[in-house]
Design a binder for these strands. Structure first.
Lengths: 126, 126
DNA sequence: TTGATTGCAAAGACTTTGCAACCGT
DNA sequence: ACGGTTGCAAAGTCTTTGCAATCAA
């Protein structure tokens, strides 16, 4: 694989990102880091990084492709509907979930769980 | 609320649908039932039905808005990546999930769980 | 009658594709 | 040199909006 500026820029951004990144956010972040790649290039790099297993697409937005680093431990997302904060949450035990699925004869590969609601701060000052 | 043909057509389709419906599928189904509404009308009716709490949007596709009837019991989706089949699955006990979330101080409103993998048939003939 | 609904065309947003130029190895 | 990468423009999809005409209550 080639080490191009955009590739390394994206890798660095994902490394320090504390929440999933939309394509537009990634583009902005790249500009801030001194690169000005074309939007097309970002799409193509993300496609490449996804096929390499470095990032995965997440379902927190209906309208914008959003990615996060795969290196993170398996987790899900708490999405605040008011302030937009996205926090990772680790389920302590998913065996019950997996057992239920297995009973259906279904072979799960990936599952995506997103919880929408109000975060601690937004739920408090209401 | 008005009882228009498209509205009633959509209601009937959702009633007999065994899986979430993409906008395109809904449009096709409407045509088959003798209606030929404009695509715009379908989008607008879905928007209205969602605000009325009759349907909800689901996350099984990254590119197409997909809806299901709200009347269904709370459940999640098993999505076969090979044949595209979508089956509902009811989790017997979600209290563990809810307890974990509560520990974060987060007030959940809705959560969406989609499991992608191979259904019984597609997993077998491989 | 009156406000909601509809169709059509146009605009909008996001994403993908084609192709020539460019860059890293 | 060679294959992957990039930028630009164009095309493609899905979705939304404006507006006048139409329809249901």
């Amino acid at each position: 694989m080639k080490h191009t500026p955009v590739y390394e820029g994206l890798t660095a951004i994902f490394k320090r990102a504390r929440k999933p990144q939309a394509v537009g956010e990634l583009l902005t972040a790249l500009y801030k880091s001194g690169l000005q790649p074309n939007k097309t290039t970002v799409y193509r790099q993300l496609e490449k990084m996804e096929s390499e297993g470095l990032v995965r697409r997440v379902n927190i937005s209906d309208t914008n492709a959003t990615y996060e680093a795969v290196s993170d431990a398996h987790h899900h997302h708490l999405v605040c509907e008011r302030c937009g904060e996205v926090r990772d949450i680790v389920m302590k035990d998913e065996s019950h979930l997996l057992r239920t699925i297995a009973a259906e004869g279904f072979a799960p590969k990936v599952h995506k769980l997103e919880i929408f609601g109000l975060c601690k701060e937004c739920g408090a000052d209401k």
